[in-house]
């Protein structure tokens, strides 16, 4: 589309004339408003992503020359890097736990609080509180609770002679951490659902009641489907939280010894003194691919429903 100072030709319809009438200033404004996000998007998201993909086929310590190594990094990750498979497993367990336990629990609390029970403000605050705690505080709390020799949990259980090693035992420490993570996630989910529930038109519930639906039926057949936008949002948040999980395990024991996660392995290899940048990038690409599986599935779903 071009801008023109010529008087409109008689043939043109008024509608088209309106389209043509972009002043240079309009173009500049549009260009600026679209251009800045595009530049930022390319510079901050696509640029680094593509750079990571490119680096994943190289060996680089951040100092000497970049050396292409083909698929070696990927080969080494799957066959010669013991923490990798546990990390994948832990990420998936994390996702399952959040999706199957923590998120439904958040919904449950939201439904209870929505019933205007007594002290609901207090419960709301108490459940939401962990969300605002910083990761450093969570790590500190974990230490206080779970420490084998001085922790509160063992003291409460009376296990002082043969204490349970909540954080040090790699067969149980993931679950100890997931309890903390769930504690945080439940509050987050609850708040979102609470907002969603407040937005559900009460007349829907009344109509269902008049039709003779009991409470469970009303919830599952009427209210829950009406929450669809919130459900999608929460599904997305749950997946993102599970795949980007990092802070809590890093604060607890730097994500080692049973708490390996893909994000931690990336950090260990790239950010630390180790500087195995090519190798770390390859793990990052693998995590990207896993994320893509969820995102593509989700987008396909959304498009299909929009079309229907």
């Amino acid at each position: 589309m071009t801008i023109t100072a010529r008087p409109p030709a008689p043939r043109t319809t008024p509608r088209r004339r309106r389209v043509i009438r972009f002043t240079p200033r309009d173009i500049a404004v549009i260009g600026l408003l679209l251009g800045i996000p595009v530049v930022l998007d390319v510079a901050l998201i696509w640029g680094p992503t593509l750079a990571s993909v490119a680096l994943s086929f190289t060996s680089w310590n951040g100092v000497t020359d970049i050396k292409p190594v083909g698929l070696d990094n990927y080969h080494n990750i799957v066959s010669n890097y013991p923490p990798f498979w546990p990390a994948v497993r832990h990420n998936l367990v994390w996702l399952l736990f959040l999706g199957v336990v923590a998120t439904p629990l958040g919904l449950f609390f939201a439904v209870l609080l929505d019933k205007q029970i007594r002290f609901s403000r207090f419960y709301q605050t108490a459940i939401y509180l962990p969300v605002v705690l910083s990761l450093a505080v969570i790590g500190f709390i974990a230490q206080l609770l779970y420490s084998r020799d001085y922790g509160a949990v063992n003291a409460a259980l009376g296990r002082t002679d043969n204490p349970i090693d909540w954080i040090g035992d790699p067969s149980i420490n993931l679950w100890s951490v997931l309890v903390l993570v769930g504690w945080r996630h439940v509050g987050y989910v609850m708040l979102l659902y609470l907002a969603g529930l407040k937005a559900v038109d009460p007349s829907l519930k009344e109509a269902a009641a008049i039709d003779g639906a009991n409470e469970a039926q009303t919830f599952f057949r009427v209210v829950f489907p009406a929450l669809r936008p919130v459900n999608i949002l929460i599904l997305v948040i749950t997946v993102i939280e599970a795949l980007r999980a990092f802070d809590v395990v890093y604060a607890i024991n730097r994500g080692r010894n049973g708490l390996e996660l893909l994000s931690v392995l990336i950090t260990d290899n790239i950010v630390g003194e180790a500087s195995r940048i090519g190798f770390g990038s390859a793990i990052a690409v693998i995590l990207l691919l896993i994320s893509l599986i969820f995102i593509v599935t989700y987008l396909l779903q959304v498009f299909r429903e929009d079309r229907a």
């Binding site: 795949l243 980007r244 990336i266 995590l287 990207l288 893509l292």
Partner: peptide, 19 residues
Amino acid sequence: MITPDHPTRRTILRGAGLG
């Protein structure tokens, strides 16, 4: 919003940011 390359971008920014 979903950012497909979250971990990658995060990692790089973290590195730069920390530094």
